[in-house]
Design a protein around this nucleic acid. Structure first.
Lengths: 194, 194
DNA sequence: TGACGGCACGAACGGTCGTACTATTATCAG
DNA sequence: CTGATAATAGTACGACCGTTCGTGCCGTCA
């Protein structure tokens, strides 16, 4: 790995931390230069536009999510165990990895009315994730762990709602029991699917 | 109502539309001056800082929410009917009133790691709303419509999760069935509380 | 040793941001 | 109708934005 690639990754690391708290728009070249100790122009040269920087930040976040959440789950047994693994890893990652919590949640509201490549990439990522969840639930049905009449899309919707609420109540409103509530809700959703 | 107050309200109207789509930070004095046909300085004089403008926007949104969602529900019979009224009105308002959907949802992720008066006001508003929902559910228990062992805080958490997911799947991912899914989830939550 | 390519730098550009002052115009009570 | 006052416009400011450009450092290899 050349020197350039090395610093580029270091920049993206910092950028992820910053973006998870302040969002993609306020992820500023100048601020990023400050935290990395580089000059604005030196940093900018690694990405040739701010849009590229944003896209690479999202790509890195996606890759980390796959590595830390999806990949371990795929090693688990098919079906419910895999779903539980995804849920647990996701909750853990959002708490520990980034200071501002799940970056996808942080930028979702920011990009939902802002057309462009960043939004497109985010939507693709989220659709991809939804498909993964759907497939995992489908397997649980095939394995006989879930009832045959489980509405898979509805299941994904409700599963997604848990994490959204976890962020809203935990991060914004500061409810210390949000994690416990999310877990309880998850157990309820699984129980209803049996 | 003097002329000043009249234009101030007109400005806030425009500001709400703008903020619901682009957020509170990108709700810019210059852009707002453009859409209202005023000069930057003339508009700025009505609020003496951007922070004041943001707070007044949030206050107006809160008042509208109370008028269009909470107040009508309070005319309804106590208990489940009131909860249904709140849910239905909330879904309707977010669809129709503002182009960017529920402004509270739009700014929640933006402010959740950004201390200041705007965040404080938003948190207060959301806590207030959560209390209202909790109280309505409590009444449903007292009236015998809900089981006595319903966990009220958990109920509020799950109710909140529905609207959060509605925005995520409907607005960001563009799922046309998001509204129907939210309704189905709501019915499920009520049924489990009976 | 000397040329070269990859990296990072400082300076500067045009623009937009929020905000402060001053001047001008519109409103409204006496 | 008039004069006080409120409302708006004009202009300027310093800060920061993304971006461009020219320059120099430094390791690699001929």
């Amino acid at each position: 790995m050349g020197k350039g690639e090395e610093t580029r990754r270091a920049i993206i690391d910092q950028a992820l931390e910053l973006a998870s708290t302040v969002g993609l728009e306020k992820l500023t070249i100048g601020a990023l230069a400050g935290t990395t100790g580089m000059s604005k122009s030196g940093l900018f040269a690694h990405f040739r536009s701010k849009e590229q920087l944003q896209l690479q930040v999202l790509a890195e976040a996606r890759q980390r999510f796959i590595e830390m959440v999806i990949a371990p789950a795929m090693q688990k047994p098919r079906g419910e165990a895999r779903l539980r693994s995804i849920f647990e890893s996701a909750m853990k990652q959002w708490e520990e990895d980034l200071p501002g919590g799940c970056i996808f949640h942080a930028v979702s509201a920011e990009l939902d009315d802002q057309p462009g490549p960043a939004r497109d990439y985010l939507v693709e990522t989220q659709r991809d994730y939804a498909d993964t969840l759907r497939r995992a639930a489908e397997i649980a049905v095939e394995e006989g762990e879930f009832r045959k009449d489980v509405d898979l899309d509805q299941f994904v919707f409700e599963l997604g709602s848990i994490t959204a609420a976890y962020h809203h109540f935990g991060r914004l409103l500061g409810d210390p029991e949000a994690e416990q509530r999310a877990r309880k809700m998850f157990e309820g959703l699984l129980a209803r699917s049996h």
